[in-house]
Design a protein around this nucleic acid. Structure first.
Lengths: 222, 222
DNA sequence: TCTGTCAATATTGTTCAACGATTATTATTT
DNA sequence: AAATAATAATCGTTGAACAATATTGACAGA
């Protein structure tokens, strides 16, 4: 068969494929996605593609204008501020009430290790991914599948913003050791201190991202 | 014409209509939704209905089994526990860091008033709705549209569980004055105390709901 | 009577073609 | 050159079609 993986339905797979293109930067913010063109490129029908569009629109990665089509969402300062607000609410609380021996702590430690080794060879893309995994693991400390799923969605949206920025080292490198410090505090059972450190960390990260964002030219253009 | 409101697209309107039927209890958990039957009832095509199904499945209100169809999600103890975990994370933090003069506080106060008057005439349905508004307003204290949208979704899922329960007075009445107390603490600028009270409140509510849930017979049957 | 096999039926998964409605573009007129 | 009308392109929705899968029911054998 020509089919690759019939384990899941077509629409979710399409959504996944498009999502990957989005966070990889292949599709630029503001760009319009033609139904007929994309359905031809991806070898699927318009209906199936539209189902995928609904999913991604609900995730905030695409924007839908009636009778005009879907566009790649244009990250704004407001969206970045909003996303960081969500992160502080969820991540700090998750850390503050964490159980120090929670399995997710192991994943956090592994993510720090991977970020360190990637940093040694200046592979900032991998550093960024490892940071992502680190924070997803933080949310997992809360032991809520709904919260974890929501966070993954928010994180994808944030990565869309990161795609516009051009200084991956500045965005990710400074936080590797801060991550390590949080793991250490968790190990020591100092959850409250870890939460406070994380909050300051996230505030600093937000400022850095916003500053980088304000430096990009012609933002908000089609 | 049968058209009611062309302001928005068809699929979201369909989703809204079905969502209302779900939280109103017209469609019972575990029930299968036939594409052909529902599309005939609602006077829409199968394709449009399927788009609505995707939305509701993503919200957790419907469950999708490949080649078998969509079913009304069956609330479980695990889902209730998960939802309350989300609520504690989001609501308590939102209260703890709230600005006492935030506009949402006014909505909280109004919700308390409405719940009180509805309670006086034993209108427990309205009391439940007012409670819902109260908690949504709490989340609005965090000033994040993503967090507020996520909470509305979680709340709809919780209402699906409430539909299985049969003691609305017990579920809602005891919390009216606790809500009032939280508003008072916020007014007094005692955010930390308000957050602590809210956490205890939510834990108690969770216990009550789980207890009521464990009393219902043949749960998890089609 | 019970059980396993297999065909018949029904439902979902996906595609395609069509048409009205809305928006974008081009051509025409003043 | 500006305003307006005609044209083209795209989306929104529908209905039908076919393949893939699941359910049902009949039937033969133990």
């Amino acid at each position: 068969m020509t089919d690759q993986d019939m384990t899941s339905a077509l629409a979710p797979r399409l959504a996944e494929a498009i999502r990957n293109k989005l966070i990889a930067g292949e599709l630029k913010p503001g760009h319009r996605l033609s139904e007929v063109k994309l359905s031809a490129d991806l070898q699927v029908s318009r209906n199936s593609l539209r189902e995928a569009f609904r999913l991604l629109t609900k995730e905030g990665l695409l924007r839908h204008e009636p009778n005009r089509g879907v566009f790649v969402a244009i990250p704004s300062m407001a969206s970045i501020i909003d996303i960081y607000r969500v992160r502080r609410v969820i991540e700090c609380r998750a850390v503050a009430q964490a159980y120090p021996k929670h399995p997710a702590v192991g994943r956090m430690r592994a993510a720090v290790e991977e970020a360190r080794s990637a940093s040694a060879r200046s592979d900032w893309g991998t550093v960024g991914s490892a940071n992502m995994v680190f924070h997803a693991a933080i949310v997992d400390l809360a032991d809520s599948e709904r919260l974890s799923a929501f966070y993954l969605q928010i994180a994808a949206e944030l990565r869309l913003s990161f795609g516009l920025l051009d200084s991956p080292e500045l965005l990710h490198a400074p936080y590797i050791e801060l991550n390590a410090a949080i793991v250490e505090k968790l190990d020591a059972g100092e959850m409250q201190e870890a939460a406070i450190a994380l909050e300051a960390y996230l505030l600093q990260s937000e400022r850095t991202v916003l500053a980088a964002f304000s430096r990009i030219p012609d933002k908000g253009k089609a």
